[in-house]
Structures are given as structure tokens and as C-alpha cells.
Design a binder for these strands. Sequence first.
DNA 1: ATTTTATGTCAGTGTTGTTGACTTTCCAAG
DNA 2: CTTGGAAAGTCAACAACACTGACATAAAAT
Lengths: 167, 167
Amino acid sequence: MDQPGPSSGESLLFLTDEQLRKGIEAMFFAYRGFTADPDRILEDHGYGRAHHRAIHFIHRAPGTTVNNLLNILGVTKQSLNRVLRTLQSDGLVEARVGAKDKRERHLYLTAKGGELERALSDAQRQRMRAAFREAGPNAVAGFRTVLEHMMDPEMRRHYAAMKEPGQ
Amino acid sequence: MDQPGPSSGESLLFLTDEQLRKGIEAMFFAYRGFTADPDRILEDHGYGRAHHRAIHFIHRAPGTTVNNLLNILGVTKQSLNRVLRTLQSDGLVEARVGAKDKRERHLYLTAKGGELERALSDAQRQRMRAAFREAGPNAVAGFRTVLEHMMDPEMRRHYAAMKEPGQ
DNA sequence: ATTTTATGTCAGTGTTGTTGACTTTCCAAG
DNA sequence: CTTGGAAAGTCAACAACACTGACATAAAAT
């Protein structure tokens, strides 16, 4: 559409509106697949995606505070609180009052919570593993690169904060 | 894409659980960015993502039937109907009774509906274009390949049914 | 004539988001 | 030390939007 740049010799055909539209639909359809398997498991437990997200990030960073989770998930604290309340009363999550700052609640998965987390992430990883394997390492690297650039800077910080496998 | 196979000496380190977890979070955070810009526009109009999806696919395939849209979107007809009803009464979408089969309603965007579609897709494309450009054509190809393999087969059919830009 | 298909509607429920009001705890300025 | 504000978390009420189930209408198919 626009993007001059042919001076560099690069074709830039991958930036046409048609290509971008393909990318948009790829995201839409792929995300549906991405959430389909966990959704089925969650349904059996009477939970939704909000519960999955909470469980995922508590697993990733045990002892995280409610406020920290709030920043990552980008919802209101009231919304998150409802989810955490049910997870706690169902015995999947434990909230310990902060030692230093007693206002804070540090969140941990219980054994039972860990079980559900494993079931959910196993299902999700299985699909991702199949997709990765079929696409190959080179495609996977491209996949990650594009997604990183699609994130809001704030979210990219949270993403990058994950401990890198190979480091 | 290229199918290495362990026999070829390929490392397969990209299939570790840690790498897969990175991929999972990349999808999560990127999808948030992916929907952020249209969400802001939709809010001004009192619409939600459901309206966006309907508008997008009516734009992509003008004259599509309600039933066809149902299959693509994967929601119940009651849910879709609520959205279509508001879009029609707001004058963004027009439903014409089928000429051949009078039970069918063929859906079209009005001029006003086309305007909103453009605003929404412009916003979404702008972000995708930036991500694509920064990542480069090779990464974009990998991105698309992995996403395709992540879709449910049914959805992949809909995705592939789009007219390919270069064909 | 009967059945099936395509669409639309009404009622009810559940998840998840929101805002508003409130409590408890911490900290810092007077 | 007290007071006042900020921060963390909770409770209650409401809105958006998904779902199921039951039902209605019209037209196509058998």
C-alpha cells in the first residue's frame, strides 16, 4: 500500500494489505485453536479463561502479589478478586499475608491447583508442540519474533521477564 | 515447512517445555496487543469484539449468509443474532432475502458499515504492519506457518479459503 | 404431506468485565 | 505521636455477551 523502500532492493510484498489481512485472520483462527483444549478442561471444573490465566501466572511466579497479577492480566482488581476467591475456596490457590507488608497477599498454587495447572498446560503445550514440530525451528523463531513485536511495550516487558530457557 | 527430523541431527531444543511455555505466553500477550487498537474504536461506538468479528467477515465475503457466518465465528445463532440485529438497526449491515433460497439472508455492509470496517482494520493493520516490518519477511513466513498449524482443521479450511494475495 | 433447513425470538443462566463504597495496613508530614 | 493520604484487598451491584433450551415461521426438499 505505502511503504516505499524499494531502494533497498527488498520486495516488501509481505507488507501489502492483503498479506496483513491474512495475518489478522491467522491470529484470529489460531487463537481459537490455542484456547480450545484448555477451555474444554476448564468447562468440566466450572471455570473460565480468567481462572486459567490466574492459575498460569501464579504457577509461573509463585508468591506473586495480587497487585502484580493485576498488572500482568490487565483487569480490575475486583474482577481478579472474584476469580481468586473461588480458586481459594476450591482449594486450588493459597494466599499468604505478606511478612514485610501485611497489606499484600502472596499467591501460591496448592497441590490440587498444581494438578489443574498441569492438565491445562499439558493440553496447551501438546497443540503448540505439534504446531512447532510441523513448522520447524526456523518458522518458530519467526513466529516468536513477530508476536513479540505485536505486543504492547508494557506487556513485552512482562514477556521478556520470563526466565529464558537457554540462559 | 522443512521437517528436520532427529535423524538429520537437528537439535529439537525448540520443542522443550520451556520453549513451548514461551510460545504460549507470546500468544497471550500478542493477542492482547492485536485486539487493543480495535477495542478502543469499538468502545466509542458501544460495540464489542463480537461486532468487530461480524463486520470483518461480512466485509471479507459480502453476501455471506447467517449460517455461513455462524460456522466461521463458532458462536450460537442467538449470540450472533443479537449482534446482527444491533448492526442492522444502526444501519451498518444490510440483510437481503436470498433470491434463490428465500430462507437465507445475505449480509452486506452499508456505506456506514464500510467506514467502521475501514477504521477497525486500519488500526489493526497498522500494528501488524509495524510488527511485520520490524520482524522481516522470513519471520513473517514462519509466523504464518506456525499459526496455521495451530488452528483446528475446520478453521484452517476457512482460513485457506481466503483468496491468496499472490495467486 | 411431511420433514428438514435457515432464520429469528424469548427466557434464563453463567462468566467476566465494570464502577462504587469500604476496610485494613502502611508511611510520611506535621 | 498523630493524622491524613496512599496502597492492597474485599464486597456488592450492574452490564456485556456468551450459552442452553424452547418455540415460531417460512421455504425448500423428500
